[in-house]
Design a protein around this nucleic acid. Structure first.
Lengths: 221, 221
DNA sequence: CCTACCGATCGGTAGG
DNA sequence: CCTACCGATCGGTAGG
């Protein structure tokens, strides 16, 4: 609550953020005018500028809020006595579930952040790198030799690809929703993790189908 | 070669397409002006309009050409005596390799096609659906019971997510390139495919860690 | 009468 | 919190 500002000032700021997130997600940042944002909020353009200084500030607030919630998610301590596979499966499920409730912000983050001025964009990317690093740690805990092969981060990015792409084809009203898909993503990724043999030169096509290895444990010992 | 048009007319059209693909990919469709496209081609804006009727035509030609090349890729007959797993691994490798040489068109297709007028966009999406259906068939050939569980297409979309997201983090000058990553994607997806148990209600948490099932074959019998 | 282009400008709208 | 504007730039087209 701002000092000396009327009750509901912060609510109005948040409402504007939600409307602009929807518009930026649907029409793109460059394709959305401040007049559209104002109209969607039932405000004049001048009133809109009373709550937010400029268009970039809206974009940054949408994306930064989303990334901060992802950082809070990965900062949660793992369940006691949880194995590495269980820890990773939990993180994946939480990521998918979080995206289900933040689809506009997520689409803005993945598609429109490139339009931010470099300084603001760099602050965003620093937060994003923290989230990716936490997932890469969880991946490496399942198969530590992948980190030495420099594959922990690439595999983590393949995982993020699966999840970040879901909004393009998953229909909320369809038979399959985020909640039903979360365990499928975890099974697919964890199952595949056991099958990855290493970087390209390590692949030995002479053995049995390399993609089908999948030793259930995958723990170092 | 157009009748009565000077030599190089079609070359000029293609050169304009390549420049606009790069600009649309970097700055977005709405964020790119026809003046920028003209300047990048060393042409006046009026000359640019001599080669292409309007901005939408550029966007459609970029995206449609890309989709047509993907359709040609999946239309190739599989290698004789290739198993279902080998067929899918080949398709994945070809998809990744194709994207490596068409990054601008790919980014435009995935991020900017929403700005096309509905009629043109629908033509694009029809082509895209064909490509997805071909991959879903290859997925279902590996594990036919997944089609009955309505998971063949969702899993195919998770695969496309991994591949469509690569451009956001894969640096061409980095140690890992598309060629090195293609077999990793194939291993991860094919390995994971054997571990997927079915739709949500089928998951039985009472058994050993569900994500670790991974019977190597995964065939119905 | 064609093509291949030019400099200049059209009616509207952008963010602020 | 609104009307009234600004400098500039938008996609597209004029005559020659």
């Amino acid at each position: 609550m701002g000092r000396g500002r009327h009750a509901g000032y912060d609510d109005q700021r948040e409402a504007i953020l939600a409307q602009s997130a929807r518009l930026f997600a649907d029409r793109g940042y460059a394709g959305t005018s401040m007049a559209m944002v104002a109209a969607a909020c039932g405000l004049s353009k001048a009133t809109l500028y009373h709550y937010w200084p400029d268009k970039d500030a809206l974009l940054f607030a949408i994306a930064d809020g989303h990334v901060q919630r992802l950082q809070a998610l990965v900062a949660q301590p793992p369940a006691p006595r949880a194995g590495a596979r269980e820890r990773l499966a939990t993180l994946i499920a939480q990521l998918v579930q979080h995206y289900a409730g933040a689809q506009d912000a997520h689409r803005v983050l993945t598609a429109e952040v490139r339009f931010l001025p470099p300084a603001l964009r760099e602050r965003m990317l620093a937060g994003e790198r923290e989230v990716v690093a936490a997932f890469a740690d969880a991946v490496a805990a399942v198969r530590p030799e992948l980190r030495e092969a420099a594959l922990a981060k690439p595999l983590t990015m393949l995982l993020f690809g699966m999840v970040n792409w879901m909004h393009t084809w998953l229909r909320p009203e369809g038979p399959l929703d985020h909640a039903a898909l979360a365990p499928v993503v975890a099974e697919l990724f964890l199952g595949g993790l056991g099958a990855v043999t290493g970087p390209a030169p390590t692949v030995r096509p002479g053995l049995a189908a390399p993609a089908a290895a999948g030793a259930p444990g995958g723990q170092p010992g």
